[in-house]
Each structure stands twice: as structure tokens, then as C-alpha cells.
Amino acid sequence: MSVSSALNAFKSSALISWKSLGKLQQTIAGCIERSGITLHSGRVARVKIWPECAGVGRYFDFRSNFIHPSVDYVQESPLCTTLCKDGYKVRTVEHLLSALEAMGVDNCRIEVEGLNGEESSVEVPIFDGSAKEWVEAIEQVGLKVATDQGGNSCEKMIPFLIEPVHVHRNDSFIAAFPYPKVQIIYGIDFPQVPAIGCQWFSSASLDDSFYTSEIGPSRTFCVYEEVEKLRNLGLIKGGSTDSAIVCSASKGWLNPPLRFPDEPCRHKVLDLIGDLSLFARHGSQGFPVAQIVGYKGGHALHADFVRRLSGIS
């Protein structure tokens, strides 16, 4: 895809200007295969990630049903991002998508298989609750320039925010402002859990080295006093102190040490990157070049923000 044809494929809008910075789309240099316990169902699933042609983008393959990670297919669900198309669901996709977006895997086929006989729903394994397993797998197999079926490379298009935009739900919000590079500022507040409390994290950049060392290893977290309630709702059946950091309101962290003093807040940034990757299309970058400020957000609010960027709401 030439620069001119790429620009024609990505029409600028009132909020986003698509630009080519001379980067070529990439894919993985070989197959990645990982299996593990899933967070919410507690079942075992296997993921195989295959190289894909330039311009195709990233997509899930579940029982030969292809689901692109687009906000068009997001089904609101508690504590994870779920994609649903034609009755088939792939759940807890955010950590994998975060790693793929940040590490520059623009095109790939993600084959997900439940190993316990699920028919219409499957979940991506949780591993240690971070994106570390996926980052290491991508680093091990390496990247290569993606080419189309004719053997041609394609420009990677980058979305630049050109007007301020914000979304909110009650006292939670995501706001974004035009900025010459990606900068993320994120805050959380758990006044009922003093060991977490109010935290803020600011990213210096979103290149793969910063992500690998500062964001990817941050694990998901939960409040111990809420565990029984969540399990009664059919959630976190596969959760354990091996797949999350657990904090008690009265006793503090139950499975220290933390990888970072502000690990819970960093994990929110990890989730944000995965959820905003839903804006990607045809091998482009999903995360917009902007200064993004988030506070007490979650997957549903992140999806609202992508819809706003997409002109859906």
C-alpha cells in the first residue's frame, strides 16, 4: 500500500488526523503458542498467534469464526473486555491486545481454543495477571516487516488527535488533548483500602522498551474483601495469588512484594493500551497520539472513549 493509497484509506475526521511517519507494518516472525488457566471461567485455554499479511490487522479465530478486535464487537462485561460476534465470544482480551499494540505486532491471527469443550465462549489465559508472558513470547519469536499477498510492504498509519475529547461515567473520566507524542496520565483512588489509596502514574512514552520494563509486568489486582462476592457472581473462578496481587482493606497486601510501588495504577495503563488498541484498523496503530488523562476508569469507559474517537457516540 503506497502512502497516497494509505491516506485515502484513512480519512481524517474532526477528531483524528491519520498520518504516515514512514514506518512499515509488522507481524511476528513465527508462531507463538501458550496455554494457561483463564481468570473468570477457571478453565484452560490455548492461544496460537500466527503471522498475517500487511493490511489485514489483528483478529481472533475462534472455531473458525473471525472476530476483529473492534469496538463494534465489544460486549460490556464486568472486569474484562469481551468481544462478541454472531454469538461467539472471546473474553479477557485486554492484556494480549495491550502487548501486541505496544510491541508493534500490527498484523496477526490469534487462534483461541478452549480445552474444556466450550462451544460458543472462550477466554484468553491470565498467566500472572500482567502482559509479561506475551511480551516475552513476542521478544522470543521476533518481528518482521509484513507484506501483502503481492509481496509489498505497507505504511503504518498513525492516528493523531486534533481536538480535545472526553468521556465520563459518574466521577470516572478519560480526557485527551492534542500532543506531539503519546503521553498517558492515569489515576486510581481506593480510599477504603489504605495500602492502595490514591495513586497517579505518568508515562514518558509508549515505545516497546518503556512498555516492556515499566508497564507490561504490572499485574491485575483485587480487594480481598470483594473476592467472595465476585465469585458468587461467577467471576474470577480461576483467580489466585499467582494471577493477581491481592490487597486487604485491613491487612494490606497479602502476596507481596509488588513489582512497582504503584503497580495497581500501572496495570490500569496496561488495560487502557489494550482497550484503545480497538481503534486500530488494517494494520494501523490503534492508540492515538495524544496526551490522555484517565481517572478511575475501567474497560467500559475505555470502550466509550474509543466509540467517541470513532464517531459512534
Rank of each mutant, 00 (worst) to 15 (best):
S248R: 06
S120T: 15
W134P: 05
V3Y: 10
D275V: 09
S130K: 01
P159H: 01
N170S: 15
G55Y: 00
E76A: 14
I273M: 00
I67R: 05
G129D: 04
Y88P: 01
V165Q: 02
L15S: 13
D242F: 07
Y186F: 14
A176K: 03
T92W: 06
G150D: 14
K268N: 12
K11N: 11
S4D: 13
E119T: 13
V105T: 05
G22S: 07
L276R: 02
I196W: 02
E94L: 06
T27N: 06
S243T: 14
E113N: 09
V165L: 15
K268S: 09
L233H: 08
Y211G: 03
I37V: 14
L96A: 10
D208Q: 13
Y186W: 04
A99I: 04
S13Q: 07
N152W: 04
T38R: 07
W134E: 02
V193Y: 00
V3R: 14
E214N: 11
P180T: 05
E52D: 12
N152T: 11
V193W: 03
G142P: 01
K296L: 11
G197I: 04
P159D: 07
V145N: 10
S120C: 08
A195E: 10
H282D: 15
N170F: 11
A303C: 13
R58Q: 09
P191Q: 12
S130G: 02
H166F: 12
D262S: 11
P164I: 01
P191F: 06
T38L: 04
A6M: 08
H302F: 05
Y224L: 13
K48M: 14
E76W: 05
V293F: 07
K85F: 11
L96I: 07
W134D: 02
L15C: 03
F287P: 06
Q26W: 00
S277V: 00
E155D: 14
L21G: 05
D189F: 05
R46D: 04
K296Y: 00
E139L: 14
K296T: 04
G297V: 02
E33I: 09
V74T: 01
R34Q: 13
E118W: 07
S20H: 12
N170D: 15
E76G: 12
S243P: 01
G150W: 11
V122P: 06
S64W: 00
Q192V: 03
G142V: 07
G55L: 01
F160N: 12
A29M: 04
V90I: 15
K132Y: 07
R169N: 11
F62P: 00
P257L: 08
L233W: 10
D86K: 12
G298P: 00
S209D: 12
N170V: 12
W50A: 01
V141C: 02
F201S: 11
S121V: 15
